[in-house]
Amino acid sequence: MATPVETISPLQYAARIIRENPVIPLILLLCALVGLLEGLQPGIFNERWVGNTIRFAIPLAMLAACQTLTMLTGGIDLSAGVVATVSAFVVATLTPLVGGPAAIVLALVPAVLMGLVNGFGVGICRVHPLIMTLGTGLIGTGCLQVYQRYVINTGSEIPGFFEFLGTGRTFGMPNALYLFVPFAILILWGLRRTGFGRLLYALGANENATRLSGVRSWQVLMALYTVVGLIAGITGLLYVGIIRAPSLSLANSLMLPSVAAAVIGGTSIFGGRGSYSGTIVGALILTVLGTLLTLLQIPEGARRLLFGAIILAVTAVYVRITDQS
């Protein structure tokens, strides 16, 4: 049987490479943004700036991991921001009372608990993830306000370990990388090379097919949302180490950008497609974009407007490039 000879124009060839490695155009976009920034304010691109950008991109990328993992199954986690805030607030208020290590453990308990409740609702009660996590997020915020009344006089302190991660530097690079690099490797490896990672993609691609293959989806979803709760909790601990001032809405401002980072990074909100490497680059793009818009000294309103418009444009173009069927 003769195989038809394919004639490919250079443009098609480039399109194919991009399709097979969807992170490449994102990295190019990131470089372009940095170039633009350097053009607008020569000399800004130095070690200090890079370190700072990475430092602020890391909590975003970690929270966006929650979105990527849940989106792969066709879900979402709108409670991730609240979970992070709860953990951060609890750790900061308990450290003066029980000491750092115990406070860290106690702070992760509500995070895992909220994840379990999400998993129960989504996996067993079949509530839509959007509604379920929105609900637990609101409940979490409420509980936090009640909790605050009881600890109002304890003062706050951040465990030394997370202060070290959040503010310290090694060779100019933020110490948060000590946490993030192993974390990212674990997620990247987990999604590609473990049964659990494969099942996340499979559930999002076709739940019926996974059922036919003997997968009990509630088990997967239960485990997923619990793990995601834990990740959000750890993110909160790191973030409070960076910001060093706990509040009742600490990580909430990261919530929607974390969804945007996952989507820009090429994760389909309908499930079945995406990668964590794309999400990491997405988080970096959003952080650089934020600096860029601040630098241009545009009023807050216009800045948000531009931010939203750019996210939409990038996502639309990206989907065009990668989804040629």
């Binding site: 993609y201 499979a202 691609a205 076709n206 019926n208 097919a209 996974t210 036919l212 079945g272 497609r273």
Partner: peptide, 8 residues
């Protein structure tokens, strides 16, 4: 379509 992960 019921049995396959079409995107995988």
């Amino acid at each position: 379509k019921d049995a396959l992960l079409m995107l995988r």
